[in-house]
Design a protein around this nucleic acid. Sequence first.
DNA 1: CCTTATTGTTAACTTCAGTTAACATTATAA
DNA 2: TTATAATGTTAACTGAAGTTAACAATAAGG
Lengths: 153, 153
Amino acid sequence: MISKALEEYLKTMYVLKKQNGNIRVTDIANKMECTKPSVNKALNNLKEEKLVNYETYGIIELTEQGESLAKKILEAYDIIYVFLKEVLNLDEEKAKREAEKIKSSISDETINKLAKYVHEVLGLSNLNCNYDINQEKCRNCIKRTAKRKEKIC
Amino acid sequence: MISKALEEYLKTMYVLKKQNGNIRVTDIANKMECTKPSVNKALNNLKEEKLVNYETYGIIELTEQGESLAKKILEAYDIIYVFLKEVLNLDEEKAKREAEKIKSSISDETINKLAKYVHEVLGLSNLNCNYDINQEKCRNCIKRTAKRKEKIC
DNA sequence: CCTTATTGTTAACTTCAGTTAACATTATAA
DNA sequence: TTATAATGTTAACTGAAGTTAACAATAAGG
């Protein structure tokens, strides 16, 4: 089991890959508002866990495991984000920051239940969801969610 | 500003005082599932912050500041607990454990909004609440909340 | 192609929150 | 009242996650 701090790094890397096509130490440090040596350490730890492939001064990439874990983390984060923004009406920036912090303390079980709740209240869900939502229950979710997904992060 | 870890100690001490009439290192350690030296350190830190009065081997008590902060922390914790238990349907034990962890990562602003939400959805609120709930909105809250308060912790 | 700027790495240190092991103090009960 | 059990304290250590300062490698522009 990886730490919550490392999960954040992994998530950030996944997002950067999507956004920029590559993953760089400096970009991670900027997004996470930390220093490059911190990123470097995280990188080595994630490599240790076989979630990331990279050699010193080389290209950084997520492994398959890394990618699927990142997706799961991102999904959890997104569920919390949606709840904060759409249900509690936090503004976007605040909701993002807060979702990260909460994500770092909440269990999978609770995320699961929150996902269901958000689903029921808002009719929003997640495609290919690792959390056990009944997709049948609201067919409109798919469309709405797909649209929303584009602007995550 | 005190750390989230110290807040947990303070909260626990407040609860123990209510429950047992006194506060002892061993009891704190048991409740928090940590060792006595950890408690001892926390105690010294809280003393440093003037939240706790105590001398080595002496009686432990919260200062006025300590008590009012503890109340606020407990209230925030309780708001999260209620949400998890009554809205998301976590079982009691899980909700307690989870509420503590979430409490340690969430901001006052978010707690505030969650409090309002819980209030609106469940008609539960907190007496003497430090969080800005409109008490007028649901007079029944008072009774229900008072009843619930008895069995907190 | 070589100088300079950018990017990445390493080493040594800090802080926080916990631990174990050893010891001191206080309380209990024979 | 004294031996023993329970409780509390201290010191020294661990590990996670960050930092700064110095340096190494790579990339880019003249």
